[in-house]
Design a protein around this nucleic acid. Structure first.
Lengths: 221, 221
DNA sequence: AGGATGTCTTGACGATCGTCCAAAAACTAT
DNA sequence: ATAGTTTTTGGACGATCGTCAAGACATCCT
């Protein structure tokens, strides 16, 4: 049995990358490995965003990448491992979306304007990826393998909304009038609704969301 | 070809029941047919609520019913037709959940108390069915065959929330302070979050939701 | 009773799924 | 160039999917 190679040993450990025994000897090796993992995860995200979790197969994912389907089991222990990696990778790209605007804004009006603009842009350009988020979050209601990662992202998104709102409040010398949870629930609900309308072809969806937020934000922060 | 039977003709028309050529001749026939459709749809809902859309197969649905898998194609043209029937049937059972309380309550406190109680009961007892709703709503972001029915249910739920809130407001001689859409978004977001926590085993999820609603409702209505 | 019609079972079909493995290819180090 | 390791390929596997059709069973009419 010669399949006991180094890569196979790595593959056995799907959850967390094992602590490198010595950082100095082979930094490129493990980096290369996890770099390809991320590369494949991104291809997977693309496919998931297009087809949804229920209709996405490993072969379809591989077809969207520049590899064949066999390689997925070289880098991931199974499908759940792959999807989890996707979810974690997705997170990093999303949660800082409004930070630049939040930090740069010098007035309530400026922050509101920038936020609304980015909000609309987000729905317009990344609708497919966002529907995937809602899909995966729903999956986590059934598959507990996703729950931790999903809950973590949800928390990050809550923080993201809170940063915007509390900054908006402080620019008016105030503090937010509702809890973090309620604030996130409100914006998430509005966003989700807008997304559904937008994907259904409703051309007023984005503008309506912006109007709603414009009206709401000053009352809660 | 003798497969041109009456039932087969019915099966061809999956979307809407064809107008009966004469209401008097065979009222029991079509009722029986659609009664079984509903019976099967309910078995399907049970399976969907347990496994989620992605993992539910027709054979599994049939196994949960008292029939075999073949019968599903006798009553439904295909899987999408079945799921759509499920979604529509699900709707009817949900949207009147708080109406009795809303109508019976004679004071803000009484309404609040009854609403909170029913809310907790809903999460506690029907968590599986509710996660299915979020699952199917997410599916509608990908599969446009579900969009109309999902949007319709969403609207009904919005109305349901609005009835509670506006009744609560009027009992205080006021009117709701926010729009229907925002109100629904808020409650739906809170509910969804509570559901995820509850299914993850968080024993404070329901109480936290109730606290949040208790704090929030008087500020919005 | 017997034939027609409606309902249900059963088994089969092609397709596709996740997974696995042996071998080819690419890469490294000597 | 050679040997050893890592990476990738592509086909095979068993299972399961949605769909379909032939026939068995049930029900009803005259």
């Amino acid at each position: 049995m010669r399949r006991q190679s180094g890569a196979t040993q790595r593959k056995i450990e799907p959850i967390r990358r094992p602590a490198r025994p010595s950082d100095r000897i082979e930094p490129t090796r493990v980096d290369k490995f996890s770099a390809r993992r991320i590369e494949l995860a991104e291809a997977a995200l693309e496919t998931l965003a297009e087809l949804g979790y229920a209709r996405t197969s490993l072969r379809e994912i591989a077809q969207k990448s520049e590899f064949t389907h066999g390689v997925l089991h070289y880098y991931f222990s199974d499908k759940v491992d792959l999807i989890c990696c996707c979810v974690r990778h997705y997170k990093a790209k999303c949660v800082t979306r409004y930070d630049q605007i939040t930090l740069a804004a010098q007035s309530r009006d400026e922050l509101l304007k920038g936020f609304l603009e980015k909000l609309g842009e987000t729905v317009r350009d990344d609708a497919r990826m966002h529907r995937l988020w809602y899909d995966l979050r729903s999956q986590s209601l059934f598959e507990d393998a996703f729950r931790n990662d999903v809950a973590e992202i949800d928390k990050s998104l809550e923080d993201m909304v809170w940063r915007v709102a509390s900054r908006f409040a402080s620019l008016g010398g105030r503090e937010p009038a509702v809890s973090r949870g309620a604030l996130y629930a409100l914006f998430d609900g509005l966003f989700q609704r807008c997304l559904l309308r937008h994907l259904s072809g409703d051309r007023n969806a984005i503008a309506d969301l912006q109007d709603e937020v414009k009206r709401l934000l000053p009352t809660v922060a």
